[in-house]
């Protein structure tokens, strides 16, 4: 179980994340929702160990990030929001780099890397440097790199932006099966439709604080708009209808 307790991040006087606590159980896909600037990415960066919390703790099955960061990070796979990659490398070289940095033996990399490239539809581009890849292709490389070492927890930060329909369907199926094998997935996104289709539970963040937690299965059984309505209510979102009208007025008068 991923156990996030009273996680807090301060940047001087700014409180970016304020005592956020939630859990992700084995076999669960948890959607992490929040408007821009609510502290989603900061939380994700602290969960994956890229950012040190000001206070609070994160642990996987009792293995605390603060006490044993190395053992903790070994159990995580991470797909960042922006596809930041070493684009002068080929996909094969990048996956081999990541696998070796994670201490995987060469024989396993020789077996798994080509196989993953085939399955992620990157085989034909294996000799091209990633500078020539589309955003969708780069995301597929990142997902392959995140899964390569068979992690216990997969952290996905907006993984569907830039993916084509086929790759999105593959991602969804993969996430479902990965969770069914007893792994944990933390899925940070803006998209309610994806959360409703993929996640079993949603955690909503607003202004750095935990605003709501909701089981998706309950939602699916009821009103399909209710997650969105819940989000609008707990994050104090304004009514966007008049703003949309104003935008159209501006461009039509131009």
């Amino acid at each position: 179980m991923l156990d996030v307790r009273a996680l807090t991040k301060r940047y001087g006087p700014l409180l970016a994340v304020d005592h956020v606590s939630f859990t992700v159980n084995r076999g669960e896909v948890v959607g992490y929702l929040g408007p821009n600037g609510s502290g989603k990415s900061t939380t994700v960066n602290m969960v994956v160990g890229l950012l040190e919390p000001s206070s609070g703790s994160v642990a996987i099955d009792g293995c605390s990030q603060g006490e044993d960061p190395i053992a903790y990070k070994r159990r995580i796979g991470y797909v960042p929001e922006e596809p930041y990659l070493y684009t002068h490398l080929t996909a094969t070289e990048y996956l081999t780099l990541v696998g070796r940095l994670r201490g995987m033996p060469q024989c396993r990399l020789d077996r798994d890397v080509p196989e993953l490239l085939r399955l992620f539809l990157l085989w034909d581009s294996r000799y091209s440097t990633m500078a020539a890849y589309s955003k969708g292709m780069r995301l597929r490389v990142l997902l392959a790199a995140a899964l390569l070492h068979n992690p216990d927890l997969l952290v996905l930060d907006e993984p569907f932006s830039g993916l084509d329909v086929n790759a999105s369907l593959l991602f969804r199926a993969l996430i479902g099966m990965f969770a069914a094998e007893g792994r944990m997935i933390l899925f940070s996104t803006h998209r309610f439709d994806m959360v409703e289709k993929v996640c079993s539970r949603a955690v909503i963040l607003s202004e750095g604080r935990l605003a709501a937690e909701q089981r998706i299965s309950d939602e699916r059984a009821g009103d399909s708009d209710s997650l969105e309505r819940l989000f609008v209510r707990v994050t104090d979102q304004q009514d966007f209808g008049p703003i949309a009208r104003d935008i159209l007025d501006v461009i039509q008068h131009a």
Binding site: V48, G49, Y86
Partner: peptide, 8 residues
């Protein structure tokens, strides 16, 4: 892109 080295 150095996050991959930071994480490992």
């Amino acid at each position: 892109a150095n996050w991959v080295f930071r994480m490992t």
